[in-house]
Design a binder for these strands. Structure first.
Lengths: 352, 352
DNA sequence: CTGTTAGCGCCTTCAG
DNA sequence: CTGAAGGCGCTAACAG
């Protein structure tokens, strides 16, 4: 029915072992023999049986990339970059290439664990976990345990855009400096003269949310603005445009005199702009707005968005290479990637 | 070292076959026995060996979802929907769930074929191919051959947001009515009184581009506007914001008097808006703009974008269910999904 | 309902 | 450099 390695061997008049060797390129094979085998492979249109080879070799060519939201370009960019970095390492031959696949957890901790189990079951060669983590201790413990098991089974684990984890299960971590970026963003606003700054935060339980909020508070505190208003001018929501819209309306209700709104990310900032505009406020004349991430659409927003650029593509590529073992991990296993303040048209000095 | 099914069997004092049966739930097992087995599974923290089971059963629990650009929400939404439809079919037990994974071809025909081969190698249970197809006959032939082989090997093939293919390799096709949607969009502009309408098309070699352009031309021809200007007022580019920007500048150079620009999709439309604005033209007062797809950001654009809504989420869910065999294919194997004209603020009657 | 018996297709020592 | 042989862990008849 389906062509097997034995069929190829027969046609090439060699042993199955030899065919295996040329396909994997792990052992020396005479050039002429290799030639003959390769021809037989083409003629028979042979496709390696992945499960069988994974079973025998106790490792597969599957690499999993976990993302929180596949419809969000933030993850799409990182995942795409990682995937191409992994795919490009392939040789193009019948054997060799990895199958880099992305798994969408939808932000659900259960699905995150489920996917990891599924990848463990497949004996994945590597796993890249992207995006902010849940700060819930129970989940962190479960996740650590699962990643440790994966690591023990020979799966290389890489974290990308996520804070480091305890233990030595993780081969490498690429963390974004969310706190530092957020701090410099708020400092920019402060330097323009803003004092009443609203903050639209993400979900409380996410590390990204915490870090960015901490950075904001750092800057406010340094400017002597850490009064009771700090909490009153912070509203939590999800990382969506709708959430930014709602939160900004709430902020406006709490303090109609605020002169700037900092959003958890660019998508949220878009919602904030909509709410502001709807309230008859001009950006940045009446209220300045800032985001985070610098997604592609941010420069096209009207007015173009002041934000913090995160090198998502570069980070994804690096994570992919680390997952392949093509790069050596950073010293200590952890690299912190800084963000870059991008000052554009959505921020200006407050009126008056 | 690693726990195997035999270990579980020994601990539960049953045969390996019985363990396999409770894990797969395919054969009747006494409730009390099942109980014992499940307990052993938990106690030993057993994880099924995917490759081994795939080898023995000659099919894996892997489902591949191919997308052209993972950073584009158009694909992210469909893929996410398909993935959750597939994941939700699982039982949550140690066996049963499918591993739905998305593969990013980056629009490259070679990578499309490579991914298909990789999935074939893994003996994937199903494959969902999303998005517009290349119209190149050679690639269509290669793709058809590959899909046929996949189908023959027992992989269920589903097309989503892509035109039907020849042959019977494909189990089901969900095609968008790009032509009809484009036609109604241009008719809307025509009915507003526009006559000099520029068209920013996608890459010539994509089916989506052709279909949408055909629909546009249909409407223009019906209005008696199929003169030599038709070609002069059409510029091709990629499905990116930058391309929309460049193409619109070109259009403006060719005919500064045009009163409307129709873009290949919403992302391109955003670029078009930027170019128009930069040229000192107001939207929609001086020039109307329309997009296609109705991505989430389109309603937040300023002004909000007139476009054609495609039910991406619904289509993705349906494709996922079809891939699982949970839904019966539409009659004839092909369903055409209509788009819905969304008239918003970016289109208005021409001046004067 | 449960145990026994063969492989699934490939990799990998071990010889030669 | 190449062949022979055993087994990876699981499933699928086949009996009972």
């Amino acid at each position: 029915m389906t062509v097997t390695l034995a069929d190829v061997a027969a046609r090439a008049r060699v042993s199955p072992a030899t065919v295996s060797r040329v396909l994997n390129g792990n052992y020396p094979v005479a050039a002429t023999t290799r030639e003959r085998v390769l021809r037989a492979v083409d003629e028979l249109d042979y496709v390696l049986n992945g499960p069988a080879s994974a079973l025998a070799a106790a490792t597969s060519d599957l690499v999993g990339i976990l993302v929180n939201d596949i419809a969000d370009p933030f993850f799409g960019i990182m995942a795409g970059a990682a995937q191409s970095a992994i795919g490009d390492t392939g040789t193009g031959r019948a054997g060799g290439e990895k199958l880099a696949v992305v798994c969408n957890t939808g932000g659900s901790p259960e699905r995150e664990l489920t996917y990891l189990t599924l990848l463990q079951r497949q004996r994945a060669a590597a796993v890249v976990v992207t995006g902010g983590a849940l700060v819930d201790p129970a989940h962190i413990a479960a996740l650590t345990a699962k990643l440790t098991k994966l690591g023990d089974a020979g799966t290389r684990v890489v974290l990308c855009g996520r804070p480091p984890m305890p233990g030595d299960a993780v081969a490498a971590t690429l963390a974004f400096d969310n706190r530092g970026g957020a701090r410099s963003l708020t400092e920019h606003l402060l330097s323009l003269g803003h004092r009443r700054i609203g903050y639209v935060a993400g979900p409380v339980e996410r590390s990204t949310t915490r870090d960015r909020l901490d950075g904001h508070r750092d800057a406010m505190t340094a400017a002597g603005l850490d009064g009771p208003d700090a909490d009153r001018l912070t509203v939590h929501g999800r990382y969506t445009r709708a959430s930014g819209y709602d939160a900004t309306r709430e902020l406006l209700a709490r303090d109609p005199s605020l002169t700037a709104v900092v959003a958890a990310n660019d998508t949220v900032a878009l919602g904030a702009c909509a709410a502001l505009r709807e309230a008859g406020l001009r950006i940045p004349d009446d209220v300045s707005v800032a985001g985070f991430d610098d997604l592609p659409f941010s420069i096209d927003a009207v007015p173009s968005l002041t934000t913090v650029r995160l090198p998502l593509h570069e980070a994804g590529v690096r994570a992919g290479r680390l997952a392949m073992g093509a790069d050596t991990p950073p010293p200590g296993g952890v690299a912190t990637i800084p963000g870059e303040l991008m000052v554009r048209a959505s921020t200006a000095p407050p009126r008056g």
